[in-house]
């Protein structure tokens, strides 16, 4: 039971979010829609976006899951500071992230000389796109998984350990199955964030069709010369995002049951 007046600001907030989407949808040229969203450039951008977002989601899981485990299941001095630093990309403007990445992995960056010796050029490559996406998406996975780990508690893990299971077995057979919904929803959120990543990518990776021009960069490029195509592609991105977020929240509810 909530007080009835709560509905007024709640409705206003909903309108604030939904109205711009309706405004955009009102500008879609439905007649040409299919042609606009299936042009070669559009499909190239969409495919690049999906591939890089999948790669960065995989990286987020591989790196983020251990980070969440360390943060949720251990205590060490300075843990609060470490957590704050890890979560920083959540609140950092992505363009700042892009500048930070440039000064780290760029040619004149912190690791520039080492990478140069190895013959690796990161800037202007698809690797740079994945790196930028991983940088901004990682905290989403860490936050959701750490929350799931804390909610699940350690009871079953302790029982398994007293029954003689080794730590890796406990992790594989008890902990991970228990927090799987949290891990999945974190991965979905990370994927959605990667798909929408713009600021860090354009600052760090540049914009070239087929290599670094992901869907958001393509839309940014297009909005000036071909607003109709830009709106059509924006709608595609909205639909994908809604589907992804919907999937994540359904998973989340399933996760609440145990």
């Amino acid at each position: 039971m909530i007080p009835r007046w709560i509905y007024v600001p709640a409705a206003l907030g909903t309108v604030l979010v939904v109205l711009p989407l309706a405004g955009m949808a009102s500008r879609v040229a439905w007649g040409d829609f299919l042609g606009l969203v299936t042009s070669d450039s559009a499909l190239t951008a969409l495919s690049l976006s999906l591939r890089t977002s999948l790669a960065s989601t995989l990286l987020c899981v591989l790196l983020g899951a251990p980070m969440a485990l360390v943060l949720a299941r251990t205590t060490f001095p300075g843990q609060g500071v470490v957590r704050a630093l890890v979560l920083l990309p959540l609140v950092l403007p992505p363009v700042v992230g892009g500048i930070a990445l440039l000064y780290t992995f760029g040619r004149r960056g912190l690791l520039g000389d080492q990478l140069d010796v190895l013959g690796i050029q990161v800037a202007f490559s698809t690797t740079a796109v994945v790196l930028a996406q991983t940088f901004v998406s990682l905290p989403f996975l860490v936050v959701s998984l750490e929350g799931a780990l804390r909610t699940a508690g350690q009871r079953y893990e302790i029982v398994a350990a007293t029954l003689g299971a080794r730590p890796t077995t406990v992790l594989r057979r008890v902990t991970l199955p228990l927090v799987l919904p949290g891990l999945v929803s974190g991965a979905v959120l990370a994927f959605a964030r990667s798909l929408g990543e713009f600021g860090a990518t354009i600052t760090f990776a540049g914009s070239l069709e087929g290599t670094t021009r992901t869907l958001p960069l393509y839309i940014y490029n297009l909005r000036v010369t071909d607003p109709e195509a830009a709106v059509a592609m924006s709608l595609v991105l909205v639909v994908v995002a809604v589907a992804v977020v919907g999937l994540a929240s359904r998973r989340g509810r399933v996760g609440e049951r145990p």
């Binding site: 202007f124 354009i202 070239l208």
Partner: peptide, 11 residues
Amino acid sequence: SPVSEEQSVTD
């Protein structure tokens, strides 16, 4: 054959 096509001259 540029490595990047930017949106503005300042970029």
